[in-house]
Design a protein around this nucleic acid. Structure first.
Lengths: 329, 329
DNA sequence: AAAGAAAGGCGAATCGTTTCACTTTTATCC
DNA sequence: GGATAAAAGTGAAACGATTCGCCTTTCTTT
């Protein structure tokens, strides 16, 4: 494999000059040509390890998330990766299966593996734990989808409470008063925010909160499925149910189907996240859609800003969800 | 940041000994203890760049795929990543948007970024292009989901033709004779294989092939959606339609719904890939399910074998799909 | 045309490991 | 206990880039 030395030799200049050429320093036009063609001929590529060692700089961005195979994250990461790649960065992906221990371990693992920046969807880590791990590295970080209270970093979120409120608004306007809510576990950032929207809507419309109509469980298909049974077997079942992520929506619909209940006649469902799912049911499913692509792009932009030297307080962006159907027909 | 020198100093041994310790050489028990505690105290971590430079070895595995946000790939990668991580590897993920040029560029990009191994879901690259790019690097490669004709590498596939045949079998047994087929573009490996299954079933049952009942288009929601219209507007529409990936299945169902057609009364649908989708419709959707987790695990295992020195011809594994409902009721 | 400034070029040190070629210590065996 | 073998330890030379400080060339300006 050709080294910078080979290129220098073939181009008739010093290694230092080739290095300058590679890194955009001042090089005479004639020499540029020679170096370019030497590189071409030798098929020279910068050795990322040598560069990383000497220059403390790498093309790697760490991406740490709870699960790779959740469509929402997949879509966010897809957009993220495309933007970062255009700036010559590679994404090192790591998922921690929503496990606290793994979350810490993989964060450590990523940090110690030479990343330049970090995109992080956190779940369990506290500010103390986060700082304990990251402080020695001084790596620019963007938190996505969730915040960590007390961490000063760029942060890309959506307006969870407002989106849920809009969904609730639609249901209430249609006459629903008993509305159930399927949310993630209490400590989860998005679960909390979405619950705020739920409670706020109830109180805005003078509806009494019934704890039988709230589920806080892992954001899985099973949770949605079981919620269907739990709610619909109540003596006084809800007339509408809001599910707050994709898997729970799917599970909920599946559970209702297995109880031979119809949507929307027997119970209305408000879903979350999968815009494609919306149109496969007999009656189009109303849904809260998060701007996944925009989330990914924004996160990438924030990170690139920092990598280019932007300093300053952590910036927090709230992107708006879209509620479908768009116009309230 | 502490270096091996600091550790050596604090432990009272030479750098070489520390290095041996780190890499599992012979070190006296007493020294092991000292080194361990020195590392602990100094919070020493191996510098991956220095190691990569000197030892020509890195913890990075390249993963190159058409799209990150296709659930099938997401599930495969998720399993893959978990296995590789347990062996201390990081996945560098790159998607090429099903674009030929990007496919080549990103492969190059990954290769030149110091990866130890490659997991690759190819689409457009020929054997010549593949070898032209990879030959200088000698990096173990596992092809997943698709083969490249003429490339000698480990390969993890599913029994596409047989799975489709089984789906067709079920439909035919139920009395269907006009069965439409929504497949990916002709050159695509899986599309070709699945079509083989389709044609074989037709001929096995003496059903004449009608080209109006075959679609070869990009594997997208739109393709599925348009196929619904195309097929059902025929003077002699099919009584069943098989869609051969997740997005096309979803699009197909959505298209049928918008034509106010019912499944299965007006037309039966056989779906592909999303096991969760199966149970949300009024009538459970029959579906071909690929063993995504097993695919990922197998690919990881193959790659680890190679990284541990296994040599020999490329091994090809065909995993079996499951057709739901499981027992033919 | 001379002086000063700017641009371009170079040698050598350096980043933090691993590994080679030895030397020294410990263990084994008759 | 001495010879021999095996285990453990070491110094120093790489790996392939970047960068600092200094020197040379070229350009600008009067």
């Amino acid at each position: 494999m050709a080294t910078i030395k080979d290129v220098a030799l073939k181009a008739g200049v010093s290694m230092a000059t080739v290095s300058k050429y590679l890194n955009g320093g001042n090089v005479r036009q004639a020499h540029k040509e020679k170096i370019r063609s030497a590189i071409e001929e030798l098929q020279y590529r910068v050795n990322p390890f040598a560069r990383g060692l000497k220059a403390q700089r790498s093309p790697y961005i760490g991406v740490l998330l709870p699960e790779i195979d959740v469509p929402f994250y997949g879509n966010v990461v897809s957009a993220l990766e495309k933007v970062l790649r255009e700036d010559g960065f590679h994404c090192i992906m790591s998922s921690y299966s929503s496990d606290h221990g793994l979350e810490r371990d993989h964060l450590q693992f990523l940090l110690s593996s030479g990343i330049e920046g970090l995109v992080y969807i956190p779940e369990h880590l506290t500010a103390e734990e986060f700082y304990e791990l990251t402080s020695r590295y001084r790596i620019p970080t963007v938190l996505v989808d969730r915040m960590i209270q007390g961490v000063d970093a760029d942060c890309v979120l959506v307006n969870n409470a407002e989106a849920v409120q809009e969904a609730m608004e639609r249901l209430i306007k249609k006459g629903h008063k008993r509305i159930a809510f399927v949310a993630g576990p209490q400590p989860m950032f998005t679960a909390k925010e979405r619950m705020v929207g739920y409670f706020r809507s109830l109180s805005d419309h003078g509806i009494l909160y019934d704890e039988a109509l709230l589920v806080n469980q892992p954001t899985t298909f099973a949770t949605g499925y079981q919620s269907a049974q739990k709610f619909m077997n109540l003596p006084n079942p809800p007339t509408a149910i809001v599910a707050t992520n994709y898997d729970m929506t799917l599970g909920l619909i599946s559970g209702l189907r297995d109880m031979e209940l119809h949507i929307p006649e027997d119970v209305q469902v408000f879903g979350f996240d999968s815009i494609e799912l919306r149109t496969v049911l007999r009656t189009p499913l109303p849904i809260v859609h998060q701007p996944e692509e925009e989330i990914g792009k924004t996160a990438a932009k924030y990170l690139l800003d920092r990598l280019r030297g932007f300093a300053g307080e952590g910036r927090i962006t709230r992107l708006n969800c879209t509620v479908y159907p768009k116009a309230d027909a």
